[in-house]
């Protein structure tokens, strides 16, 4: 395990891209924010604006989403129990949280092993019926990788700290991560239940050099949409109008009335 290097201020980290433009303090919106710890070997406390957000946060764990009011946050990560007035192990100042977004902030290693905080905006747009959304994020100290499902590459040449995503038919898949362009398995395989209407976000984290690469999974459900229709009849047997036997009975009765009426009139004349 290499020593955790202290990172100088990483400068402003803009979240939500264009959404984050100069948020006025009067805005009342919030965003759902989760935090994933992907730096191996160090339990930490996370502070936001000087307040403890998370204590005893262990590697490989994910927070439940929390609604953070729109605004700007200074994030700092300290080894668990350490004085927050000291120099943080990782920090990111002026992180702008927009309104109405779904964000995961990941504490992870860069490709060369430096701990950083990277915010990702999660895609919570509606998914077509029958499909699932698979998002993969490279947050490990490792070179470019391919992500395979059932042995077939789904995402190729993914680099730290990039993500790739696709909407695919919902299914259980066996996924693994290989070094880009090779069959050298770096992580897995792991069985993933990619549920319909759900965004399953898979993180590759850890360090190749320290042989502790692993997967972390976050799911965002409720993105489903309903089927387009219910085609449930081609026969045309359902009778919407008067059934044929009843039509026949009515016709026969009318004919009978006409016949009897004629006879009655004739009988009246004769009589």
């Amino acid at each position: 395990m290499r020593p955790l290097r202290v990172l100088a201020a990483t400068g402003a980290v803009a979240l939500g891209l264009g959404l984050a433009a100069a948020a006025p303090s009067s805005a009342a919106g919030t965003s759902d924010v989760s935090v994933l710890h992907g730096v191996p070997g160090l339990t930490v406390d996370v502070y936001a604006n000087g307040d403890p957000l998370l204590t005893d946060f262990k590697p490989g764990t994910l927070t439940d989403p929390v609604k953070l009011p729109e605004g700007t946050y200074d994030l700092a990560v300290f080894p668990a129990g350490e004085d927050p007035d000291g120099t943080p192990a990782i920090k990111a100042d002026d992180v702008a949280v927009p309104s109405g977004a779904n964000i995961t902030i990941v504490a992870h290693l860069t490709a060369d092993g430096t701990p950083v905080l990277t915010p990702f905006v999660n895609d919570t747009s509606r998914i077509k019926p029958g499909e699932t959304r698979l998002t993969v994020r490279h947050t490990a100290a490792a070179p470019a990788v391919d992500v395979r499902a059932g042995g077939t590459p789904v995402f190729e040449g993914l680099e730290n700290p990039k993500e790739a995503k696709a909407d695919i038919p919902a299914a259980k898949v066996s996924a693994d991560v290989v070094l880009a362009g090779t069959d050298t398995v770096a992580i897995g395989p792991a069985d993933l239940d990619l549920k319909e209407g759900t965004n399953t976000i898979v993180y590759a984290w850890g360090s190749a050099e320290d042989k502790n690469l692993a997967l972390a999974v976050q799911t965002i459900s409720g993105l489903h949409s309903a089927p387009g229709g219910v085609p449930s009849g081609t026969g045309g047997l359902l009778e919407d109008g008067l059934p044929m036997p009843l039509v026949a009975v009515t016709v026969v009765a009318l004919a009978g009335a006409a016949f009897a009426g004629r006879r009655a009139v004739l009988a009246t004349r004769r009589g």
């Binding site: 998370l54 994910l62 439940d64 953070l68 792991a190 993180y203 997967l215």
Partner: peptide, 17 residues
């Protein structure tokens, strides 16, 4: 000047069958 920060809970994120 900065928004208040709520406390959050965390749990393992390893894939589960």
């Amino acid at each position: 000047s900065r928004p208040a920060v709520p406390k959050v809970t965390a749990r393992p994120a390893a894939p589960e069958d």
